[in-house]
Amino acid sequence: MSASSSLRSFGTALRTLLVLTVILGILYPAAILLVGRAMPAAADGSLISDHGTVVGSSLIGQDFTGDTWFHPRPSAGKYDALNSGASNLAPTSTDLAKQISDLRAQVAKTENVDPAAVPADALTASASGLDPDISPEYARLQSARVAAARHLPEETVARLVRKHTEQPLLGFIGTPTVNVLELNLALEHAAGNEG
């Protein structure tokens, strides 16, 4: 292949790449950005406001500690939304096994229940470290503690858990979940009303 034909091939490749970059790398994402303006809530991250201040995203889990809140799943990144990721520990890891059994004892003590009653999602870190959900079982387990700490009737808290339990779409797509941030926000409002 001669030098001039190499140069021509290089030129063709470069020009074609640049044109396609404009179409696929600028026009395409820009078009989707425009469509996003028609559904800003979704496009901007499903943000939740409380009395006019943004308190988080319904899709991104937050850490909650203390007796007055429902607790989320363990997180490898401590719910840092700029540091998503999993523990990546192998199931054969003795560290992981110990971590899980320690956590089981700890959760059982916090919730004052039998260790065998603690569900798996309360003991395992999610893949993103930002899982916004817990299982309805884990939410019910925490109800009594939260109700006592907030001086609310247990039935009020149980009703909130039921209200925020999301069933699988069409009955089979996904698993039943409770969004922790939404539940805690509802709890805060319920406390305000009762108080």
Binding site: P119, A120, D121, T124, A125, D131, T177
Partner: peptide, 10 residues
């Protein structure tokens, strides 16, 4: 109790 380590609940 389940293979949920490193998995998203949803």
């Amino acid at each position: 109790g389940a293979a949920l380590e490193g998995k998203e609940l949803r």
